Amino acid sequence: MGHWWYRNIIEPGKLPMLLALLSFVTSFLVTRVITRLIRAGRGPFKNVTPGGMHVHHVVPGVILVIVGGFGAVGSGRHGIGALASAVVFGLGAGLVLDEFALILHLDDVYWSEQGRKSVEIVVLTAALVALVLGGFLPFGVNDLTYEERQSRGLVAINAATNFFLALIALWKGKPRTALIGILVPFVALIGAVRLARPSSPYAKRFYANRPRARAKAGLRAFHHDRRWAGPRRRFQDFIGGAPDPSPPDSPPDTPPGPDVSRGSDRRH
């Protein structure tokens, strides 16, 4: 364990990335705790509303990301400056991605159903960074031996193949599989060879005239969503809090009735 820690974290200069990951996760968790307390009306925390304008925490998050990013560029990968910049960057990234859904929709959807995207993107980001810290390199280059890495052509072919598989998985409507597949090629291969999601561009292009394939893809997507939607929602609610219930659908408008006055005029 000590040898792995030194080889993958300390020796290659990955300590700043480790600190950035820890501060990123801490920033997100602390922010979620505070926002849930504010939502419940507990504790001393309140929304920041100078002059009646609600300042979302994505604003200080962007400032911290800028400071940490430029600080990291200026200080390099070693030294106290690099470590401090990594921590500042991680704190800011946690604040920014906690309101990812707000940025995406350009609306305050923090406690709505759309706000679940923020929790999902934070978990996915943390997982990808953790894989990189664990020694995984993009497009599976880490699977090659040292001698194989000396051949630029072999490295290029390996990276291009894995990149192509990740693109196919994305084309088939599997963005999570594609992102993880960038670091773990076997995952991208599974996403590339399995049936596409029914609403994906791939399905619309190749399943349009194949009713059996379209029906099979829809059935598989239905079973997958029924199996995993519940656990995923419970996990998201546990991490980020349950969204506000959606308002009930308004009743349809009543069509206008007959013009009684006009009919009454005709009777007289």
Rank of each mutant, 00 (worst) to 15 (best):
Gly2Leu: 12
His3Cys: 00
Trp5Ile: 14
Lys14Gly: 05
Leu15Val: 09
Ser23Met: 09
Val25Pro: 02
Val25Tyr: 02
Val33Cys: 01
Thr35Arg: 13
Thr35Ala: 03
Lys46Met: 09
Thr49His: 06
Pro50Met: 14
Gly51Asp: 03
Met53Pro: 00
Pro60Phe: 12
Ile66Glu: 12
Ile66Asn: 08
Val67Gly: 04
Gly69Ile: 08
Ala72Glu: 04
Ile80Thr: 15
Ala82Gly: 03
Gly90Thr: 06
Gly94Met: 05
Gly94Pro: 09
Phe100Ile: 02
Ala101Phe: 08
Leu102Cys: 02
His105Phe: 15
Asp107Val: 00
Val109Ala: 06
Trp111Thr: 13
Lys117Ser: 12
Val123Thr: 13
Val123Lys: 08
Leu124Ala: 14
Val129Tyr: 07
Gly135Val: 03
Phe136Asn: 10
Pro138Phe: 11
Leu144Trp: 05
Glu148Leu: 14
Ala159Asn: 03
Phe163Glu: 01
Ala166Thr: 02
Leu170His: 03
Lys174Tyr: 05
Lys174Ala: 04
Arg176Gly: 13
Thr177Trp: 11
Thr177Asp: 09
Val184Glu: 04
Phe186Thr: 12
Ala192Lys: 04
Ala192Tyr: 07
Leu219Ser: 13
Ala221Val: 01
His223Gly: 07
His224Cys: 04
His224Leu: 15
Arg226Asn: 15
Arg226Trp: 15
Arg232Phe: 12
Ser250Lys: 15
Ser250Met: 09
Gly257Lys: 07
Asp259His: 14
Val260Pro: 00
Arg266Val: 13
